[in-house]
Write a protein that binds this DNA or RNA. Structure first.
Lengths: 347, 347
DNA sequence: TTTATTTACACAATCGATTGCGTAAAAGTT
DNA sequence: AACTTTTACGCAATCGATTGTGTAAATAAA
């Protein structure tokens, strides 16, 4: 498509017989421009249909008012809500949001990081791919003073701001909830162990077991991509076990729900035969029957908080030590767990 | 955050003792640059950590390789899948995707359109807000030769490319499916009538009724935002009816599923007392019990197709008449409908 | 009235890459 | 040997907005 001439500040300048400088300053309400001139410029700009060229301004000002968001997948309830939160805060603050999915691939993540840099985003909010083990591609931002905030799927030992939940505590509580409702043999569904969040949830699970005198058993941990199909596979594997578990703590809802459905098909009663606790509080959690007890994940708030943090960093005059923002989670008790037989100890 | 100096082509040029022109051309593999020079430039670029400044190039070339995506909400299964499809195709073609949600608000949609223009996106894929009735904000793109493709929620009578499904036919088939499975009193849940897609679905519903000798009854059409809460409200309203309907065709799954659950609570059997057909095939549709029969909406494919179309337009030398891309839908028969008592007539 | 200050604006460089045009040297042609 | 063509590269303008510096004129202060 051939490019048409767009209205620039010089068109306005010529129209009014002033300089481009004056127009630029009038538009940004600079003090050294007279009131009549300002009014005239604003008026002319409106009449002529002037819309500023952010690209040109960005080149000069070395800022684009753009935030890059690097996430594994966009079409997942948790992540799209997070993005929604980012969008909301960023837009209100005058920032644009550009989004790239890594599809959980390390290579794509690296490529996307370069693209963001190439587009000179002012800041990056990243949630890492399952595959990612090496973090050196983020040096692109760090070395070039581009603000960087990790959200949810954060890196370990990286000196950046992080916005996340307390995965260990959440998993500990969820597992203990199962124990307190009478479960003794608890299976855990987990994701790739190079993602800290899954490692921590698993650790919380393990710790809760041990604190309650239940031996931790490797064979009860099912690791993978946490997809729906995996839920079905996991369920089938569970049915093969010589002794069935009486509780399942899953690192996400998708795999939990699909496993639940499969186990129901096999005639098991939930929560009586097996109790379930999921993670995320996806829409499906409250639709499945029985409704899934799950750990709420404040997706929107993580998004909002990350956006606020990155904007703070972008505008900061000096660097300051990385912050760790931890958002609260809570167990949403529904129908896939039994009543507590023992009251939950005070925190 | 203060800006650091980044490596530019001039740094490379100085380093090698050539001109910026040569570096620029070497990097873009221009024929007039010697092989040794090219290699030297590439080498130096790599060593010095050069990453092109797309902003600067965009200013000069008057293209940003960016596609703006204007959607009502990002955190909805259908839309996030659509975006995923757009992303996939766009990224492969070297385009970035910048996303703005209108939150179904006309005002935000207009503001977002201006932002896109201000950022000089090469093309825009838009799915309109529920509120939008006036389309003049899109003239910004049309008048300035910025490619524009409408996806899913398209405008009526707008001379732009559209990627969508045949809403009328899909609704007709869905309604007729209910009729052929024995339903005689069919309720319809619909969205804002200024969105063509809902108008068409409603028209398809009406037409199917009339073609099958069932009188169309205004009072059986529930219009709104198609949210979950609305499903509950609708269900309650239905229970107040003097004569219960025996089928419900819903313009989305969310409202259908929540209504279904509410009706189940009231003791109604689905599909025996009331059959349900939804729209979209959201994840919840296959989780609810009984699983929801629904019309599949090829979200990913709509996204991919829109992206392909916008890229085609961006690269087109001359304008050509608008295209209407209609993607197939299909009824996913699950458990919320009864068996057909009459075979579906051949199309 | 003179000096200092403020007001209101313009000049020109700058951001980083691209590109039309120009040119010297090398290679090829008669 | 004289001429044409090709190869390889540089100059300088350009994209559109921003901004440090300079400078008249108007106003205020001395």
């Amino acid at each position: 498509m051939e490019k048409k001439k767009r209205v620039t500040i010089y068109d306005i300048a010529k129209h009014l017989g002033v300089s481009g400088t004056t127009v630029s300053r009038a538009l940004s309400d600079h003090h050294s421009i007279g009131d009549k001139t300002k009014k005239a410029v604003l008026q002319a700009a409106k009449e002529m249909g002037y819309i500023p060229n952010t690209i040109a301004a960005g080149l000069r000002k070395k800022q684009t008012n753009t935030i890059g968001v690097l996430i594994p997948w966009i079409n997942r309830p948790f992540i799209s809500s997070m993005i929604s939160g980012i969008e909301e805060v960023a837009n209100d603050a005058g920032y644009n949001v550009i989004i790239s999915q890594s599809c959980d691939s390390y290579k794509k993540e690296v490529a996307n990081a370069e693209t963001f840099f190439s587009n000179r985003v002012d800041g990056v909010i990243a949630s890492m791919a399952m595959e990612t083990e090496d973090f050196s591609h983020f040096n692109l931002f760090i070395d070039n003073d581009i603000a960087l905030v990790f959200a949810d799927r954060v890196g370990k030992n990286l000196p950046q701001d992080k916005v996340m939940i307390d995965n260990f505590a959440a998993a500990f509580e969820a597992t203990e909830y199962l124990i307190h409702s009478g479960c003794r043999k608890i299976v855990h569904f987990t994701g790739a162990p190079n993602r800290e969040i899954y490692k921590l949830r698993r650790a919380g699970y393990q710790d809760a077991l041990e604190k309650n005198g239940i031996p931790y058993d490797e064979k009860l941990v099912f690791s993978g991509l946490l997809s729906g199909e995996e839920g079905v596979r996991n369920a089938k594997a569970i049915l093969e076990l010589k002794e069935l578990p009486d509780g399942i703590f899953s690192a996400n809802d998708t795999v939990a729900v699909h496993a639940m459905i499969e186990l129901k098909k096999a005639g098991l009663k939930i929560p009586d035969d097996i109790s379930f606790i999921g993670f995320n509080d996806d829409p499906i959690a409250s639709i499945v029957e029985p409704q899934l007890t799950t750990v709420s994940h404040p997706a929107l708030e993580i998004g909002r908080s990350s956006a606020r943090q990155i904007i703070k960093r972008i505008n900061a005059k000096h660097s300051s030590p990385p912050e760790n923002i931890v958002l609260p989670t809570q167990i949403i008790v529904r129908e896939s767990t039994r009543k507590l037989v023992k009251s939950v100890p005070p925190k």
